[in-house]
């Protein structure tokens, strides 16, 4: 079977949806709404890149939504105090990385199951944020909006940056030695250990990367609106995990790449607009997302059984 079968089939599914939209709802392809859609999904794509890293090491992080909210609010507060944009950006990334490091420490250091650890950090962070902020919004200074550019320019800048970044990360994952360690650990942690790799360290780093990227994504979300609300990241974890899993990153670790995650996210991102354009109620989105996750893991399960592994 072709190595990139999954990536290709997801791209195929995406193409079919786009063709269907072109045939039945050409309004979808108007440039401005499309650009807005891309801008809205840009932060999610950044997080999906980090999530792919973590899942390839055979872990999972469902606290990204809370990390996203916390980094966003913190960055927003700093921006509101008049910090310059670059410093705010660095702060957002650092806060995210710190939160990721906490997860990494618990998972890699104490060898706790990542699902329960991140479930706990998800709620702790979210409720902590709610407790402190009481649902209050942060008003952002205008200078932060679209990096001080016009809206259209800002949107283009954001989308282009995101795509370049994702490509860069994808290339790094393939062409930098450290990227390959991630795969080695996810494929077989014991064999990795025998080959002189520390699975613990790699796992920890993957969580830190995901945290940092989540911080970056929060920053990218921040510049899009005049206000930032504490619930901005709620539910993000599911969308991100769904995108990554649908894109062919195996939950059993060691397999997948960012192109698949990119295609997976685009597929999921098109569902909601497609539903509206095709006159299906948007309330089905979550159910369809869940169904797509299940289909994707079922496909993996079938393939694994056929492969006899």
């Amino acid at each position: 079977m072709n190595r990139y079968f999954r990536e290709l089939s997801v791209t195929g599914a995406l193409a079919i949806i786009l063709l269907g939209l072109a045939a039945f709802a050409p309004a979808f392809f108007q440039p401005q709404p499309l650009l807005s859609l891309a801008t809205r999904e840009a932060p999610t794509l950044i997080v999906a890149g980090g999530m792919a890293l973590v899942i390839i090491t055979r872990q999972i992080d469902i606290s990204v939504g809370s990390q996203f909210s916390v980094s966003g609010i913190c960055a927003g507060l700093l921006a509101a105090r008049g910090w310059p944009l670059p410093l705010v950006l660095i702060a957002a990334i650092s806060i995210g990385a710190l939160l990721g490091a906490l997860n990494g420490l618990l998972v890699a250091g104490l060898r706790l199951p990542s699902i329960v650890v991140t479930l706990a950090t998800m709620v702790t962070l979210r409720q902590g944020l709610n407790l402190v902020r009481q649902g209050e919004f942060v008003n952002l200074p205008d200078s932060i909006q679209w990096f001080g550019l016009s809206q259209a320019a800002g949107q283009w800048a954001l989308v282009i940056f995101t795509l370049l970044f994702t490509v860069g990360l994808g290339v790094a994952l393939r062409h930098i030695a450290a990227g390959r360690l991630v795969y080695a650990v996810g494929t077989d942690a014991e064999a990795a250990r025998l080959a002189g790799i520390s699975p613990q360290r790699v796992t920890f780093c993957a969580f830190v990367c995901l945290g940092g990227l989540t911080g970056l994504a929060a920053m990218m979300n921040l510049v899009q609106s005049p206000q930032i609300q504490p619930l901005s990241g709620q539910g993000m974890e599911l969308k991100v995990i769904a995108a990554v899993v649908v894109g062919g990153v195996a939950i059993s670790g060691g397999r997948g790449n960012l192109w698949g995650a990119l295609a997976g996210l685009m597929l999921l991102a098109c569902i909601a607009p497609a539903l509206t354009h095709l006159h299906v109620e948007a309330y089905w989105e979550k159910a369809i997302q869940g169904g797509i996750i299940l289909l994707a893991v079922m496909a993996d399960g079938w393939r694994a059984r056929k492969g006899g592994r």
Binding site: L238, K286, A287, G291, I293
Partner: peptide, 21 residues
């Protein structure tokens, strides 16, 4: 023989989504 974690993560979304739908 799928891992319970990812299966129930999928149904977590599916069940809630059905309720909303």
């Amino acid at each position: 023989r799928l891992p319970p974690l990812i299966v129930t993560l999928g149904t977590y979304s599916l069940f809630r989504g059905l309720a909303e739908a």
